[in-house]
């Protein structure tokens, strides 16, 4: 996983609430066995007409937002299904950071596993950042995870908070599984205790 320290990028304004994972990546694209290649169809139905041509009113089809690295969106971003294809598709398009007033839990989790930083801000802050992003002349934001701060085009600062473990993993690009496997002994000892206390949870016992 690529680490995330500080990002300066164009921010695309998506001023609507409840952007769900079906909108981010419709299910016909879930039939892949890979993680990559979904950037070309991210936001498929919002972005393209049935005949495959672009919908000009959609923000990512407009300049300079075609090169966005950040999305600023309304409340409850990423609600709906657990599909990790949603962050994969965003990442493959080039989105490394999403700013909203709230995120759906599973989506929020999935972002960290893929090197995307989801930032939660208050609603007046979101309004200001939405206005920044909507300024076509200068829609660039800087997001610095080290100091947990967004730097606005006018130099203004918005502080945010990410829990410590996630922040560390993202800053260093650490792989969760590798970290957990270092705790193998603790897992072993949990299992031996559980096997005694709740033997019915172990199949070799269930079948007799």
């Amino acid at each position: 996983m690529e680490n995330f320290t500080r990002l300066t990028a164009i921010a695309a304004p998506m001023d609507r609430i409840n952007i769900d994972t079906d909108m981010i990546i419709p299910k016909q694209y879930l039939r892949t066995i890979k993680r990559t290649g979904l950037g070309s169809v991210v936001f498929d139905e919002l972005r393209f007409n049935v005949d495959g041509t672009e919908k000009s009113e959609f923000v990512l089809n407009q300049e300079p937002y075609r090169r966005s690295g950040i999305i600023v969106a309304g409340d409850n971003f990423g609600c709906g299904s657990s599909r990790e294809h949603a962050p994969w598709a965003l990442l493959d398009f080039g989105i490394r950071c999403i700013i909203s007033t709230s995120f759906a839990d599973i989506f929020y989790n999935n972002c960290f596993k893929n090197g995307i930083l989801p930032v939660t801000v208050k609603s007046d802050q979101l309004k200001a950042l939405m206005a920044d992003a909507s300024d076509r002349e200068n829609p660039e934001l800087t997001v610095d995870l080290n100091i947990e701060t967004i730097i606005r085009p006018n130099g203004g600062r918005v502080a945010f908070k990410i829990d410590e473990f996630r922040r560390k993993c993202l800053l260093e690009g650490l792989d969760d599984i590798g970290l957990t496997l270092q705790k193998q002994r603790k897992i072993d000892s949990f299992e031996s205790k559980q096997r005694v206390n709740q033997p019915w949870l172990y199949l070799e016992n269930e079948s007799n």
Partner: peptide, 11 residues
């Protein structure tokens, strides 16, 4: 999510 599926399978 899918990464977590892998995490559970492995650990």
């Amino acid at each position: 999510g899918t990464s977590e599926v892998e995490h559970v399978l492995a650990t």
